[in-house]
Simulated assay, not measured.
Amino acid sequence: MFERFSRDARAAVVGAQAFGRELRARRITTGHLLYAVAAGEDDAAAALRAAGATPIRLRDAIERGAADPLDPEALRAIGVDLAAVRDAAEAEFGPGALDAPDASGPYRLRGPVFADDAKKALELSLRQTLKARQKRIEAGHVLLGLIQDERFASVRLLTEAGVDVAALRADVTTRLRAAA
């Protein structure tokens, strides 16, 4: 499928992988893909910026969400003191025992893999391309795939940033038609 991707769309996929590795993520999510599209220099990135979703705002939101995969608030609600658990684990197994594994370790030769929702978003980008009767998958098609399913983290990130997802979809569709 990647042979159909334009330079900008490929850059978004590669950028998402790099961002995921930088955050030491286990999986590349729709959030990583959204950030990478926003960091581009094409019409899709311009549409995101026009909607108020800048790369800096998206990166901050993703980093906040990735700061601790063990949600201290959720654990506290069920009576678990995360600080006490960390202290006990580190006393028994050493510092950083609960930290995410190093993505560069011997069993992570290829880095993080794409999460199911990210794979689905990329598949949806292909469907968007075919629906528009275009031959190449552009970054705009990737963005349309990322905002097609309201369960995706990418949609949640945009909504939390105050973006009108329906208006963004219309803007991206218009930009893709104009460029075709």
Rank of each mutant, 00 (worst) to 15 (best):
S6V: 02
A18K: 01
D81W: 13
R156M: 09
A45N: 06
I78P: 01
D71Y: 09
A44N: 07
P106G: 15
S104H: 13
R24D: 10
R133V: 14
R4V: 10
I28W: 04
A166P: 09
F152V: 03
A11R: 08
R127Q: 09
P95C: 09
A139N: 05
A39F: 01
A67S: 15
R57M: 11
R26Q: 10
A47F: 03
L143T: 00
A44G: 01
G140C: 04
A121L: 11
E63T: 14
K120Q: 13
L58H: 10
V13E: 05
A25W: 02
R7W: 07
D81H: 08
A12H: 06
P101S: 10
V13P: 06
G15C: 06
R10C: 01
M1K: 06
A139T: 00
E73L: 14
T29R: 06
L98T: 04
S125I: 02
E22I: 02
T29K: 07
G20T: 03
G162F: 15
T54F: 08
A161I: 08
A47S: 09
T173R: 03
R57V: 15
A139Q: 02
F114W: 11
G52Q: 01
G105E: 08
A67T: 09
A44R: 05
A118K: 04
E63A: 08
V80N: 09
S104Y: 07
D68S: 14
Q134K: 12
T159P: 11
L58I: 14
P72E: 15
A44M: 04
L98D: 09
V13I: 12
V155Y: 07
V37H: 00
V13Y: 03
A53D: 10
G31A: 07
A88D: 10
L130R: 15
G31I: 03
G31S: 11
I137S: 04
L144S: 00
L126E: 00
A180R: 09
F152M: 10
I56D: 15
A89R: 04
A89V: 08
L130I: 13
Y35F: 13
P112N: 12
L158M: 12
E160Y: 13
D60Y: 12
L75D: 07
G31N: 07
Q134Y: 00
I137M: 00
D8G: 02
L122Q: 02
L144G: 01
P72V: 15
R21H: 04
A88P: 07
L126K: 05
I147V: 09
D8E: 09
P95F: 14
R4F: 06
A47L: 07
F19V: 06
E160Q: 14
A170V: 05
L176V: 08
D102W: 03
